[in-house]
Design a protein around this nucleic acid. Structure first.
Lengths: 399, 399
DNA sequence: GCTATTTAATACGAGGTGCAAATTAAATTC
DNA sequence: GAATTTAATTTGCACCTCGTATTAAATAGC
């Protein structure tokens, strides 16, 4: 068990203060003191040390309750954007998106590589990822030495703690130590994380869950992922495993087990149409879903049927997730949302039908159609989170 | 956010030490120091304060590595059994079981009331519970003043934090503030908890999960409950809600949503047979399942069919739970286990079929046929846990 | 333009906490 | 009975947070 010593205490309060500054934009010391319930003395000491370490900056304008207020004006504090830089990436089967962000999470540069890497050998994928990171860093006018860490978000079952990829649709192999592979290639600390977890943290930092401590996110892409935020922290399964929703069983059909992925995965929906080859190119370019929507609007009955079935399956699954976690909000993201109304309506209907009466109204469904940039930014947030959490310069004793 | 001050620090380490003493039986200070990674100085200080508060005792025998070992012998420390007494209860539809335990969790007295309280008015149930608690306390040779707290474990959706019963099969009403009702009746702090959570903690303290930090328990009784242990703590949903597995959706059938409870609940299995009235009395006595097993052994085809279907449904559900939580062990408890081999075999088969290949082998299934006493003891453990966790006498500054 | 007032932020001392080193305690070995 | 070995406590120190007193920096009033 983790032993509690003064150092831990300091680290906890430091994180608490730094996190408050990050979240509440420019904020004065008094307000920090109120929010964190730390004494002003302690807040002063901690912010002093954060200023020394260059993690935050002072700003003398911006006190909102200014004008006609007496007394010494508050000095506003904010995160120093230039305190660190990280790279976040979303690695998907048909494209890779990289962003470089500063310490505040602002995007400094963005790079999309619309390359199909599906089922390539590890070395090839690693080459492409390495290349993408390097180019994106250069685009930001930086060099890799300026980057503090890298976080790669990718689909599948990822073991965050060890950086192993247990299984992923973009790799033929299983159980790959991708984190150390990329760490040595880039000679920069590299984190591997589930893309769903990445965008979950992204929403908590920048998106539709900034106001919440608990939340569930469901990602509907090539694979179906789950992110659970519990008490302001990512809830990872025992052993730090990410979840793979597609493996969930919906029931048994005539030909055995029916998994969610067979009903609602990207390939399940598109696959039925593959025969006539209309989607080959679209899918290759990562625009499968966009294309689908165009077809749906043209009233392609078969596609509508697939979308409706997928929506039902997802709706039931969400109801089950809500039954287990009772989150105040469920955020849905991913390319499958582009299926449009037939999908969304059947999803909503199935959810409404399946949610147990006693839980009716505890969760709201929110749909988010952010672009891939946001996923990559979420990965950057994962990298930043670990920086924020780390004791940093370990300035040691406040001197 | 919880602010970290010296007091919290002390509380954390105190709990860590006390928990180590509880778990590792009689144990010396040096060993505590090794296990908790606290310095011997700190361990001495904390154990000193625990001794002052009468929560632990010294024992001078029992050093295993004795004989032929030089040096001053270690003084063994153990929890003081008489430091507190609690009452734990399992309240089910057809019976109530009470136990009084000491601070170590040893059962001092036990009382079973085989009364059907199903659908009685609150006041009647509260009367019966109060009576049961009082009689069990008297049986232990104690008076209610000697009891530090009471924990009632009952089925349904319980909001532990507020002590409200959101919904329960044994109450007609919903949203009952049962904790304060019973607290005032007994004039003793009373906790209300889901029976599944109670036996989950029971297994962590006394049963089949003593060695684990993470674990999932599934209770198969009148209702289907879930307990998740995560990092040595009970994982309660956002808002401290307990889970109701029966509300999970298995899929859609011809007549709409199919919930787990309609396949695997006690009444779902027995219900089909209700028509011929053979079970009326057995169920009333709470021996429905025992009776069923006798019939199954007599090859009642209809019952076997129901048991097999229930086993399948539960097996699939467990696979889904494992997909989400990836626990190293899943413990199954509850009266439905008495359905015997037809049920268990189909459960195992369905689980094996449904568990995703990437998670094969991460979880072991364990069946536990503990009696109701153990459930009540688990409820006692919940009560004890809160005592252990509380700062206690707040001896205040170690003087 | 000066002083009084008000609010923000910082010093200072007290009390609590854990740790390393030194000391005391209690056994075995020779 | 002295030396040795191991356990547990005492001592001294560095650190943390907090309450109170003090300093800093603005406005309000005359």
């Amino acid at each position: 068990m983790k032993t509690a010593d003064p150092e831990l205490m300091r680290a906890m309060n430091r994180l608490s203060v730094l996190d408050t500054i990050r979240r509440r934009g420019p904020i004065s010391r008094v307000e920090i003191s109120e929010r964190t319930e730390l004494s002003t003395t302690t807040v002063s000491a901690i912010t002093g040390s954060l200023l020394d370490d260059g993690l935050i900056l002072t700003r003398h304008e911006g006190d909102i309750r200014n004008e006609a207020v007496r007394g010494r004006p508050r000095v506003m504090l904010e995160v120093n954007p230039d305190a660190a830089r990280v790279v976040g990436a979303k690695i998907a089967a048909s494209r890779m998106v990289f962003v470089v962000t500063n310490f505040r999470g602002d995007v400094l540069s963005q790079l999309t590589l619309p390359i199909r890497i599906d089922r390539q050998p590890i070395a090839v994928i690693a080459d492409l990822v390495e290349d993408g990171v390097r180019r994106c860093v250069v685009d930001a006018g930086l060099s890799l030495e300026d980057v503090d860490s890298v976080c790669l978000g990718l689909p599948g079952v990822i073991e965050h703690r060890t950086g192993h990829i247990r299984s992923s649709p973009i790799f033929r192999e299983i159980n790959i130590d991708f984190a150390s592979e990329m760490s040595t290639r880039l000679s920069t600390p590299t984190i591997v994380e589930s893309d769903a977890h990445a965008i979950t943290l992204g929403h908590h930092w920048f998106g539709k869950a900034r106001d919440l401590q608990d939340m569930v996110l469901i990602s509907l892409e090539q694979t179906l992922g789950l992110g659970v935020l519990h008490g302001n922290r990512l809830f990872r399964g025992a052993g730090g495993l990410s979840h793979n929703l597609g493996d969930l069983v919906l029931g048994t059909g005539p030909q055995g087990i029916v998994r969610l992925s067979s009903q609602a995965g990207e390939s399940a929906i598109l696959g039925e149409q593959q025969a006539d080859g209309r989607f080959a190119e679209a899918v290759r370019l990562g625009r499968g879903m966009t294309h689908v929507q165009a077809l749906i609007q043209a009233d392609d009955d078969r596609l509508i049927g697939a979308a409706v079935r997928a929506g039902e399956a997802v709706g039931l699954t969400i109801a089950n997730i809500v039954t287990l976690f009772a989150p105040p909000r469920v955020i849905l993201v991913g390319s499958s949302l582009a299926l449009g109304e037939p999908f969304l309506n059947s999803l909503r209907d199935a959810y409404a039908l399946a949610i147990p009466p006693s839980l009716k109204g505890v969760s709201e469904l929110v749909f988010d159609d952010s672009t891939d940039d946001f996923w990559a930014q979420g990965a950057a947030a994962v990298a930043l989170y670990e920086l924020y959490e780390s004791p940093w310069s370990t300035t040691g004793p406040a001197l």
